[in-house]
Design a protein around this nucleic acid. Structure first.
Length: 1175
RNA sequence: GGGUGUAUAGCUCAGUUGGUUAGAGCGCGUCCCUGAUAAGGACGAGGUCCCUAGUUCGAGUCUAGGUACACCCA
């Protein structure tokens, strides 16, 4: 016996039971254990930031991350799934600041770095718990207990080791980075913060002359005209830039008898601004200006450095500053086409500067920065020393005018960022010292490694990611913050020389080491403190030791922490604590076969993984390190690892998920928001606005995953994600759509399963009585052993059909899943379940209802359906693990516990048995389903309901090859369409006309340009005649432009068209014509069927049980109807369990009135079984 | 401003190497079934495949240009 299946299934409840079952029986652990010796499938968990609650987008990522490891595990691989948490970074600090009600770095300092760090650690730990709950509820199987955590000591030390490696190889260096700087607060702002603070303001817009120099370095009367909206950056001017390819003009300005150079495209605009004529005297491309020198408007630096030359790497000499450079980002949208370059105050300016600097061997340009971190001019700018730069704009403009180099000034409206905390404080771009990883040295390797990655979708490789790699710049690694992996570099306080440290132990072993007692004391005071904090600020900053560089010098750590993206990108080795421990683990778990994250990770995790692995593990990186490799144990280990890893890119397959969008409804004025459409419609009707947009915490435009789990279950959500679109498309988080995945798939499968259980129990279909041995996974080879399990070839057609469909489905699903195409696989599963439910079960019902329990046909039906359910459950197990488990548990509930595999997730994924696939049968069945579908269509058009029997249906086939087969299924078609006779014909000129069309694909290459004429000729000819010709001669001969063409049967396609005036419907392969003539006999049969239906309805209204007997009174004046009833009395009584039918009222029994046979019918139905009547 | 992607039914999306009647689900409408029953099913209406030009015998599909939207970067 199987456990009865409740009608009112509640999936969320079932899922909770399943979760308990998995936990109790350690199914996940067992699924791993039984594959321990199998080939590996390596999965990397991209660590979510344990900061804030998980939202629906995270559910998608986690569902996808679960799907493929589950699938691969069932396919026989060993797939470890180590969870991971990204715990460092600014977002965590911000979160803690919010709780503490503080904002700035000063406030953090005065609160105390020590308690602040402790708060950060507590905060992420709290959120990790929330994430663990969601992970579990979603059914994401991942090893939470063994999770790697980026703040853990072993993780931090592993990261340190990699940084030390880079430092020793000269790949970690100190430079400048231009950041958005808040001068008053003395801190840099993240791009997110900057984005919040943009305001539209008016700034000065000035056009300044830069006189070109002659051979003797004297200014000429020809000037470059440059434009800027930040006059305060003028004292720090270092270059002017033009576009090499643009055209520029030299113009004569009569007013002051001087010449200017501007972009040709902007001349008119500029002339209009000053309202005077600027006469073109020369035109040339920008490249002709390159290398020329000019005099900057201020001489604070020029007096000292002007004209100084540096030595280029090429051996030549070149003036280092105030020279014209080429830049490709110049536009002619505004300005003059010549750009003022102040590298200290603009990111692109700085990049230009760096690439310029790189050309020199010595004496190259140094960064000119006339402004202090407080936003005030420094002592170099003697006139305005101490003035805040933004307030000095007016004075600077006046000074430029006085110096005679101001051409024009005006106001300019644009968006400029202000501090989001102090709204009157403008931000400025400002250079800060920063540490960089020299990724640019590995650009070619990064690109080569990228080339080996299988990206889904593939355009990421060349597109978003490839382009990003091509324009690679060095990784700005350091952050002037608190909660992060400390940069493991110690500086000699005397000489400034530096060294990197790879572990805490290494520090402890340093001579003259002090400062560890600060941590020890804190720990003694508060034993609860996790030891991981000892490698964090502020404790680590206290550890100093004797300088190996200068006697008496002390080594002290730099103050920075690192970018948390580096943390996550280091996970392939840091999750194992490599190289301090975990060498074996790294070797067996690198690279990943599969990773998946959302699109926003392109420049995040996808990049940091690739960059770190490439720099650390690639062949080229070994050259430098090999000589030094054996210097210490750690590097010796690395050498060994490098030897074995010939695969420096860290992941082979990567599914890039689309972004998740929210859906909501708004009142017409947008003031009121609804998450449920019905609520909005109730209030605002058709004026309700449907909105789709980004998910937003503050708008609250989505419901929490927990609510979805509670209402519909995790399977519904998972199936919606996996089966509704390719995963890289943006996905709408639509509650309605999630809900609908239940009836569309989950409930449909459930109903088939429920149907099976009901009848299997009624008929005592009991596999356990026939299969006494170990049934394991209930594979076909096991089922075969049952006495009543007949070979498939001996079973009925319907069974062979669905089993063939099943094997075809297995084949396609496996093929799709191996290609990481979950959508394609899910589509196939949906189709199969639909066929199973709507054709197999529907057409097999009477087989399950027949009385003889032991009939072979009935046993076949059970075995077939059982096998389908077992197999399809396995197929869907990675997608909807809860549903699959529940079904499996009950399908095996008849066996003893030890007899069958405990959980479906311990089973192997099905493998297609292609021998069972019967392609012809599949096509035949498809054709028959089309015929019945067309028949219904024709009925609908003729307004003849299915209950009305018809005399005949005629089917005209375009291709008669399966006519015999179809004729052997007349009974089925008759039943489906409720007709008395089915007739097939290939020639039915009366009803249809034949349209002969060329087979374009075949004939295209042969007839080429004549195709339209061929089509016309074939179309014009009488189709029937052509077909006859084809049938008798085997070919059709057409004469075209003096040439004869022979067409055989494959060269043409026959299209059937129903002629007017028939109840017909045409499909691709056939036309179905209904005989619409209704004889009195047929009409009476129709009446009878209608009457039965009315009585059944009434039974239901009266609350009759299925077994209740009734008595019927049918009062009518219609003679035909009476005859109909008399003729079919027995049938009606049998169908409706009526003891008797009268043609009069039944005493005090209430009646209902109906229209039947175009007259009124009063129907009396009395329940003879029930003691009390319900009306 | 640059890069990438998207644009197909009211909505959400499929659409193979170009092949002549462009599909699905939902929603809507009409109806069927009533022993899977608080389910199930059928049928139908609904399309300028974003626009323009080109290549081709033939374009939703290929090319070029444009428009709109989204994301990333500036």
């Amino acid at each position: 016996m199987f456990r009865p299946v409740a009608n009112d299934v509640r999936f969320p409840e079932l899922e909770k039971e399943t979760l308990a079952f998995w936990k109790e029986n350690a199914i996940y652990q067992r699924s791993l254990a039984q594959r321990r010796e199998s080939p590996k499938f390596v999965f990397f968990e991209g660590p979510p930031t344990a900061n804030g609650l998980p939202h629906p987008g995270h559910c998608l990522t986690r569902a996808m991350k679960d799907l493929f490891p589950r699938y691969k595990t069932m396919r026989g691989y060993y797939c470890e799934r180590k969870a991971g948490w990204d715990t460092h970074g600014l977002p965590v600090e911000v979160e803690v600041c919010k709780e503490l009600g503080i904002h700035s770095k000063e406030e953090i300092e005065s609160y105390g770095v020590e308690p602040f760090i402790q708060q950060c650690q507590k905060s992420v730990w709290r959120y990790m718990k929330e994430w663990e709950q969601l992970t579990e509820r979603l059914g994401f199987w991942v090893d939470l207990e063994e999770a790697y955590v980026t703040y853990h000591k072993s993780y931090v030390e592993s990261v340190w080791w990699s940084l030390k490696t880079f430092f020793d190889r000269g790949l970690l260096y100190k430079g400048h980075k231009i950041v958005w700087w808040w001068p008053q607060g003395g801190t840099a702002l993240s791009s997110g913060e900057v984005g919040q603070g943009y305001r539209n303001v008016a700034d000065p817009s000035i056009y300044v002359k830069f006189p070109l120099l002659d051979e003797q370095n004297r200014p000429t009367n020809t000037s470059l005209l440059v434009w800027t909206t930040t006059p305060w950056t003028m004292p720090s001017n270092q270059f002017a830039a033009v576009s090499a390819s643009f055209y520029y003009v030299k113009v004569y300005d009569e007013e002051n008898d001087e010449y200017f150079i501007v972009a040709k495209a902007l001349l008119e605009t500029i002339a209009a601004k000053v309202k005077r004529e600027l006469k073109v005297v020369e035109e040339f491309q920008g490249k002709e200006l390159l290398g020329k020198c000019y005099q900057p408007p201020f001489d604070y630096y020029y007096s000292e450095k002007g004209g100084k030359e540096g030595l280029l790497k090429s051996g030549e000499k070149q003036v280092a500053n105030w020279r014209i450079l080429s830049a490709d980002y110049i536009t002619t949208d505004s300005g003059t086409g010549i750009v003022h370059i102040a590298p200290a105050f603009g990111e692109v300016d700085y990049e230009l500067f760096v690439s310029e600097q790189a050309l020199y061997q010595e004496g190259g340009p140094d960064l000119i920065c006339a402004v202090g971190p407080d936003g005030r001019f420094n002592e170099q700018v003697s006139e305005w020393e101490g003035r805040f730069v933004k307030e000095a704009d007016k004075d600077l403009t006046r000074a430029l005018r006085e110096r005679g180099v101001l051409f024009h000034n005006e106001q300019y409206l644009h968006d400029y960022p202000f501090c989001w905390r102090a709204q009157d404080d403008p931000l400025i771009q400002y250079p800060r010292e920063s540490w960089f990883v020299k990724t640019t040295d590995f650009k070619e390797e990064l690109l080569a490694n990228n080339d080996k990655i299988n990206w889904l979708p593939d355009h990421i490789k060349e597109g978003r990611f490839g382009n990003f790699l091509k324009s690679n710049i060095d990784w700005a690694l350091s952050r002037e913050r608190y909660w992060g992996t400390p940069l493991p570099i110690w500086v000699c306080q005397e000489s400034g020389q530096m060294e990197a440290i790879a572990s805490y132990q290494e520090l402890l072993d340093k001579p003259g080491r002090t400062g560890t007692e600060v941590w020890e004391k804190a720990k003694a005071e508060n034993p609860e403190l996790p030891d991981d904090l000892m490698v964090h600020k502020p404790y680590i900053d206290e550890v100093t030791y004797d300088s190996p560089f200068v006697p008496g010098g002390r080594m002290k750590r730099v103050s920075e922490v690192i970018d948390c993206w580096y943390d996550s990108g280091a996970m392939p080795f840091a999750q194992w604590g490599y190289p301090h421990v975990g060498k074996e683990e790294l070797l067996s778990q690198f690279p990943a076969d599969f990773i998946s994250e959302a699109l926003d990770q392109t420049r995040g995790w996808f990049y940091s993984l690739l960059a770190i692995s490439t720099l650390l593990f690639s062949k080229e990186s070994r050259k430098g390190s090999e000589e030094e490799a054996v210097k210490d144990v750690v590097n010796a280990q690395l050498a060994e690892v490098l030897e074995k890893l010939d695969y420096p890119h860290p992941y082979k397959n990567c599914i890039v998920l689309g972004l998740m969008l929210a859906e909501w409804w708004e009142s017409p004025d947008g003031q009121e928001r609804f998450l449920v459409e019905e609520e909005a419609r109730q209030k605002y009707g058709k004026k309700t606005q449907h909105k789709v947009g980004k998910m937003s915490k503050s708008l609250r435009n989505y419901r929490s995953p927990e609510e979805i789990f509670e209402s519909y279950g995790a399977d519904a959500l998972r199936w919606y994600f996996m089966a509704n679109q390719a995963p890289w498309n943006s996905i709408l988080y639509s509650e309605r759509a999630i809900k609908e995945s239940i009836p569309e798939f989950i409930l449909r499968l459930w109903n088939v399963y429920g149907f099976f259980v009901i009848y299997a129990n009624i008929d005592q279909f009991s596999p356990e009585s026939e299969l006494l041995q170990d049934v394991g996974q209930l594979d076909p080879s096991v089922l075969q052993e049952a006495a009543t399990y007949r070979p498939i070839s001996e079973r009925g057609e319907l069974d062979r059909w669905i089993l063939s469909e099943l094997q075809r489905t297995v084949e396609i699903v496996v093929e799709r899943m191996d290609a990481y195409d979950n959508y394609g696989a899910a589509t196939q599963l949906t189709d199969f379940v639909d066929g199973l439910s709507n054709w197999y079960v529907r057409r097999s019902r009477d087989r399950f209802w027949q009385e003889d329990r032991e009939s072979p046909d009935k046993r076949d039906a059970y075995w077939t359906l059982y096998e389908c359910l077992v197999t399809v459950s396995k197929l869907v197990a990675p997608f909807t693990p809860f549903l699959a488990e529940t079904i499996w548990q009950n399908l095996t509930s008849c066996f003893n516990r030890e007899q069958a595999v405990t959980s479906i997730h311990l089973c192997d994924y099905p493998i297609a048995n292609k021998e069972i696939v019967d392609v012809e049968l599949s096509q035949q069945m498809k054709l028959m389903r089309e015929i019945t579908s067309l028949g219904r269509s024709a009925r609908m058009n003729a307004k003849l309901k299915v209950r009305q029997p018809l005399a005949k249906v005629e089917v005209v086939l375009a291709d008669p090859c399966w006519q015999d087969w179809l004729e052997s299924h007349n009974a089925l078609v008759m039943e489906e369409l409720n007709v008395k006779e089915v007739e097939y014909s290939t020639e039915a000129d009366r009803y249809i006309s034949y349209l002969i069309q060329p087979n374009f694909k075949r004939l295209g290459p042969r007839v080429g340009k004549l195709m339209p004429k061929v089509k016309e000729l074939l179309g014009k000819a009488e189709g029937g005649e052509l077909l006859k010709e084809l049938n008798t001669n085997g070919k059709i001969t057409l004469s075209l432009e003096g040439q004869d063409f022979d067409f055989d049967a494959d060269d043409i396609q026959v299209r059937l068209q129903a002629k007017e005036g028939w109840a017909a419907a045409q499909g691709n392969a056939c036309v179905v014509i209904l005989s619409t003539e209704l004889t009195p006999e047929l009409k009476r049969e129709g009446y009878m069927r209608d009457l039965v239906r009315l009585i059944q309805d009434r039974r239901k209204e009266l609350g009759c049980d299925f077994t209740d007997r009734i008595e019927i009174g049918a009062k009518t004046e219609d003679a035909e109807l009476k005859i109909a009833i008399e003729e079919n009395r027995q049938y009606i009584q049998k169908e409706t369990l009526a003891d008797d039918i009268h043609f009069e009222s039944l005493g005090d029994c209430p009646s209902t009135e109906h229209q039947l046979a175009e007259t009124a019918l009063h129907l009396y139905v009395r329940n003879l079984t029930a003691t009390t009547e319900v009306s």
